[in-house]
Design a protein around this nucleic acid. Structure first.
Length: 777
RNA sequence: GCCGGGGUGGCGAAAUUGGUUAGACGCACAGGACUUAAAAUCCUGCGAGGGCUUAAAAACCUCAUGUGGGUUCGAUUCCCACCCCCGGCACCA
C-alpha cells in the first residue's frame, strides 16, 4: 500500500520542530565544524522548481554531514531589497515592504514543506534595519579607506528600469534584469574600487578548489593584460595660431597609449583616439576639419553599446592639422578618431600597428595607411623612448548607486559645499524614508522625501543634503554569510570569535549566473574586510559548486510563454515532498552546471520506489543480519558518503535502489537491517524515514542517528579475468597475492582458453594482480 | 575568434591513476502473471546487425561511447586532427 504522504509529512515536521532538531550551537567545537552555504533567495513569491533544486538537494548534504557527526551550520535568509518588489508595488499599488514581507512569509512555509533542515534561528533579511545598519556601516568603512568614491564617469543606464547598472549587470549590451539595451550616460555616481583588488582577486583563485570553469570565467572577467604605456608627442601642422596655442596648453603635448606589444612600436603608422577620449575635445580648436570630427563623435555617442560592437566594419575620421611622432622611428604619423578603440580601456588611445594587429590592419586597408613590417624593439629600446611597463585589467570599478527606492540608503550626507560625509555610526541605521513617490522617473525617489531632508537638517544642520541613491542589492548580499553567525547582534556586524572558528565557508552552492557577479563581489568584500582586520580570512569560500538548471518537460528552458513551467506544489501534493526531493537528487550529477529536463514519469517512479521501501519495512523479522547483507550495507553507506562529498547524489540514490532491490528478494528482512536502511534513506526522504523509524519502534528521531560506517571486509580471494588476445575467455579465482604462474596455470585449463589458444604458446603474458591475465599469441 | 566544459541506447544517466562481459540505476516501450475488467503490484525482455530459416529460443560471431587516424597485450578513458553542442569573454589594443 502506498503511504499517506500528506499525513506523515505533516507529522514528521511537527516532531522536528518539537525537538528543535536543526538548531546548531555555533560555540560547540567538540565536533568538526562545517559551514554549508546555499545562496539565499530573493522573496519573489512562490517557490519554483529552481528553488527546490537549490535547497532540497543541498539539504541532503547538510543532513549527511550532521549524521557524520559534524556540527553543521546550514542557514537561510532573504535577499529582500530589490527591483521586483518596487515594480510590483508600482503595478499593484502596494507597498514594496508589504509585498516583500508577505512573500517571505509564504516562502518560509514552502521551504518547510520541502523537509529542509535550515536553522531558522539565524535568519537574515537584508531589508530589515537591523541588517542594513551593518551594510551601511561597512560602506562607511570602505568610504573612510578611500575604497568607496563618488565620481563622474561614463556609466551604463537602463532606460526601462530608470537606473544605472554595474558593468556586471550588463549582459551582451543589455540590462541583465529586463533585457533592454543599455545607454551610456555621464553621471556622478558611487563606485566601490574593486579594480584595486583585481590582482588579488586573480591570484586568490589559485588557492581555491573550485571547478576550473568557474575560476576561468572570473579570470576572463578580471581580464589581466601586461604591456606598456608609451607617449607619442603631438605636432601641429595647421594654421597660423599654432605657436600661440602650443604655449597655452601644456597638456596638449603628447598622447599616451597602452599596448600589450610595445616591441612592435617601430611598426606604429598611426594613432587612434577613442571618440570619448578627453583629448579629442581639447584638440578640437586646432583641428582643421572640426565639423567632421564633431559629427563622428556625436554619432558614436548616440549608439548603444550593442550597436557599436555589432558593426565590425571599421569607421573613423582623421584629425587634420594634428599629428603624432612615433617615439621609435621619429616619423610623423596621422591621428584618427575611431570607435573601434574604447574610451574605457587602457588609456583610450592606441598606437596602430597594422602589420601585427588585425583590427589596425583592417582600418589601415580601408584608409590607405602604410603597413610596415618591422624590426622589433627590445625592452632597453622601449625604456629609452619612455615606455613604462603597465598592467591593465578589464574589470571596472563597481558602480553601486541606484536611482531606485527599495534598497539600502547610501549612508552619506553632503555639506553645504557639496562634499560627501559618512553618516556617523550612532545615526545608523540610516532609515529608508517612507514618504516617497517611488515611480521611476530617472530621478532618485528618495529626493521626494520631506522626512529625509528634515532628518538631515536636524542632525547635520542647514544647507546639508542627503544622498538620494540607494545601494545595489549586490552590496547587501556581499556579506550576508557573515551575519548568520550572530544575526541579532546590535553592536557588531558579526561575531569575531565565531568567524575565527567557522570561516572560511566549507562549501557554497549556487547558480552559475553569479560567477561574475555576486561571487566576485563577495570575494572583493571579504578581501577588503580582511585588510581592515574585520574578518579572519581573505577568501570566503573554500569550495564552490554551481548547480544545473531544471528545464521543462520538453527540454526547453521553462517560460510562461512556452507553457512548459513546472509547478513543484502540484507534485508535492500528488507524490509528496520526499518524492520530489529524491527525484531532483536522482536526475543527474549536482556538481556540474548541466541542464536536466523535468520528467513527470520520473517523479512518479521515485514515489514508487519510496512505496517499495515502505512495504519492505512490513517484512521485518528478528533474525541476525548475514555477513553478505552486512557487506551490502557497508558498500552502500560508503558509496553514499563518497558521492555526497562530490555532490553526486544521482549515484547515491542508485546505490540505495540497488540495496532495496537486494532486500526485496528476501522473504523477510532482519529488523536491524531495515533500521540501517531507514537511516540511510533519511537525508534523501526525511519525512518517510521518520515515519518508518517510528514504525520500526525506534526511539527519538531518525535524524539524530549517526551514519552507519560498517567496514568492508576485503576478500581473501578475487576473480581474475582470463583473456586471450584481449578477449575475455573465462575467469579464475585466485588468492589476493596469487602469482603470475599460479594464474597462468589456472587459466590454461579453461576449455574456452584452450580452444582460443589452438595449441599455440602465448608469446606474451600480461598479468594485473586481482584483475586480469591476458595471454597474447 | 579566444578560453573552459561536453558529445555514451528512444530518454536522464553509469563506468575514466587504461584492465573482466560498455550502458549500473531509473524512465519509456514490449510481452506475461494477478483481476470480470481496470488501476496498483509483480515477473520477463529491451544498443545494432548477423546466426535466422515458416516461427520462436539459445550458443556463437561482428559492429558500437561524435568523426577519422594513432599509441597499447588491452582505449569511453591517453595523443593528433576534424565536426557538433553548452558556458564564459570578445573591436579590451
Amino acid at each position: 500500500m502506498a503511504y499517506d504522504h500528506k499525513e506523515i509529512e505533516k507529522k514528521a515536521r511537527e516532531k522536528w520542530s518539537g525537538l528543535d532538531l536543526y538548531h546548531s550551537d555555533l560555540t560547540d567545537d567538540t565536533r568538526e565544524l562545517y559551514y554549508l552555504l546555499v545562496e539565499f533567495p530573493y522573496p519573489s513569491g512562490d517557490l519554483h522548481i529552481g528553488h527546490w533544486y537549490a535547497f532540497a538537494v543541498t539539504d541532503i548534504y547538510a543532513r549527511l554531514l550532521r549524521m557524520r557527526g559534524k556540527n553543521v551550520l546550514f542557514p537561510i535568509g532573504f535577499d529582500a531589497f530589490g527591483l521586483p518588489a518596487e515594480n510590483a508595488a508600482i503595478k499593484h499599488g502596494v507597498n514594496p515592504k508589504e509585498w516583500t514581507y508577505e512573500n517571505m512569509a509564504r516562502m518560509r512555509e514552502q521551504l518547510a514543506t520541502m523537509g529542509s533542515s535550515f536553522d531558522w534561528s539565524k535568519e537574515v533579511v537584508t531589508c530589515e534595519p537591523s541588517y542594513y545598519q551593518w551594510t551601511q556601516w561597512l560602506f562607511t568603512k570602505l568610504f573612510e579607506h578611500n575604497l568607496a568614491e563618488r565620481r563622474l564617469a561614463a556609466v551604463k543606464w537602463c532606460p526601462k528600469d530608470q537606473t544605472v547598472l554595474a558593468n556586471e549587470q550588463v549582459v551582451d549590451g543589455a540590462c541583465e534584469r529586463c533585457g533592454t539595451s543599455v545607454e551610456e550616460k555621464h553621471l556622478t555616481q558611487w563606485f566601490l574600487k574593486i579594480t584595486s583588488y583585481a590582482e588579488r582577486l586573480l591570484t586568490g583563485l589559485d588557492t581555491l578548489s573550485w571547478r576550473e570553469e568557474i575560476k576561468d570565467a572570473q579570470r576572463a572577467w578580471i581580464g589581466k593584460s601586461e604591456g606598456a604605456k608609451l607617449k607619442f608627442s603631438l605636432q601641429f601642422t595647421g594654421g597660423s595660431e599654432q605657436e600661440e596655442l602650443q604655449t597655452v596648453s601644456s597638456n596638449l603635448q603628447a598622447v599616451e597609449v597602452f599596448t600589450t606589444r610595445p616591441d612592435t612600436v617601430f611598426g606604429a603608422t598611426y594613432v587612434v583616439l577613442a571618440p570619448e577620449h578627453p583629448l579629442v575635445l581639447s584638440l578640437m580648436k586646432k583641428v582643421l576639419n572640426k565639423k567632421d570630427v564633431k559629427k563622428y563623435v556625436s554619432a558614436t555617442a548616440k549608439k548603444t553599446e550593442r550597436e557599436r560592437s555589432e558593426n565590425k566594419e571599421k569607421t573613423g575620421v582623421k584629425m587634420e592639422g594634428v599629428s603624432a611622432i612615433n617615439p621609435a622611428t621619429k616619423e610623423e604619423i596621422p591621428i584618427y578618431v575611431a570607435d573601434y578603440v574604447l574610451g574605457s580601456y587602457g588609456t583610450g588611445a592606441v598606437m596602430a600597428v597594422p602589420a601585427h594587429d588585425e583590427r589596425d590592419f583592417e582600418f589601415a586597408k580601408k584608409f590607405n595607411l602604410p603597413i610596415l613590417e618591422t624590426e622589433f624593439a627590445d625592452w632597453n629600446t622601449i625604456a629609452e623612448i619612455g615606455g613604462v611597463k603597465t598592467t591593465q585589467y578589464r574589470i571596472r570599478d563597481w558602480l553601486v548607486s541606484r536611482q531606485r527606492y527599495w534598497g539600502c540608503p547610501i549612508p552619506i550626507v553632503y555639506d553645504p559645499e557639496g562634499k560627501p560625509h559618512a553618516i556617523p555610526a550612532e545615526h545608523l541605521p540610516w532609515l529608508l524614508p517612507t514618504d516617497v513617490d517611488f515611480k521611476p522617473t530617472g530621478k532618485a525617489p528618495l529626493a521626494s522625501s520631506k522626512e529625509l531632508q528634515e532628518r538631515v537638517t536636524k542632525i547635520f544642520g542647514e544647507g546639508w543634503t542627503p544622498e538620494y541613491d540607494t545601494l545595489d542589492t549586490f552590496v547587501d548580499s556581499s556579506w550576508y554569510f557573515l551575519r548568520y553567525f550572530d544575526s541579532k547582534n546590535a553592536h557588531n556586524f558579526s561575531n569575531a570569535e565565531l568567524m575565527k572558528k567557522w570561516l572560511p565557508i566549507n562549501r557554497y552552492s549556487g547558480g552559475s549566473e553569479h560567477t561574475t557577479m555576486h561571487l566576485l563581489y563577495a570575494r572583493f568584500f571579504i578581501k577588503v574586510l580582511y585588510d581592515l582586520a574585520l574578518v579572519p580570512v581573505d577568501e570566503p569560500f573554500t569550495e564552490r559548486f554551481n548547480r544545473g538548471i531544471i528545464m521543462g518537460p520538453d527540454g526547453a528552458k521553462m517560460s510562461k510563454s512556452k507553457g512548459n513551467v513546472v509547478n513543484p506544489d502540484e507534485f508535492v501534493l500528488k507524490y509528496g515532498a520526499d518524492a520530489v526531493r529524491i527525484y531532483l537528487a536522482f536526475i543527474g550529477p549536482y556538481n556540474e552546471p548541466r541542464s536536466y529536463p523535468w520528467s513527470l514519469e520520473g517523479v512518479a517512479s521515485m514515489r514508487k520506489f519510496l512505496d517499495r521501501v515502505s512495504r519492505l519495512v512490513e517484512k521485518a523479522d528478528s533474525k541476525a543480519v548475514s555477513d553478505s547483507l552486512n557487506q551490502a550495507f557497508a558498500r552502500t553507506s560508503q558509496k553514499i558518503s563518497e558521492d555526497g562529498n562530490r555532490f553526486k547524489f544521482n549515484t547515491s540514490v542508485a546505490a540505495l535502489m540497488i540495496l532495496v532491490n537486494e532486500l526485496e528478494a528476501l522473504e523477510t528482512v532482519p529488523k536491524s537491517a531495515l533500521t540501517q536502511l531507514v537511516i540511510m534513506l533519511a537525508p534523501f526522504a526525511p519525512h518517510l524515514a521518520e515515519h518508518l523509524w517510528e514504525k520500526l519502534g525506534e526511539e527519538g528521531s531518525v535524524h539524530q542517528q549517526l551514519w552507519p560506517v560498517a567496514s568492508i571486509i576485503t576478500a581473501s580471494e578475487n576473480e581474475v579475468v582470463v583473456q586471450v588476445n584481449g578477449k575475455r575467455r573465462g575467469s579464475i579465482t585466485l588468492t589476493v597475492n596469487g602469482s603470475e604462474s599460479d594464474a597462468l596455470t589456472a587459466a590454461q585449463v579453461i576449455p574456452a582458453v584452450v580452444a582460443a589458444l589452438a595449441g599455440k604458446e602465448p608469446k606474451r603474458v600480461v598479468y594485473v594482480p586481482g584483475k586480469i591475465i591476458n595471454l597474447v599469441v
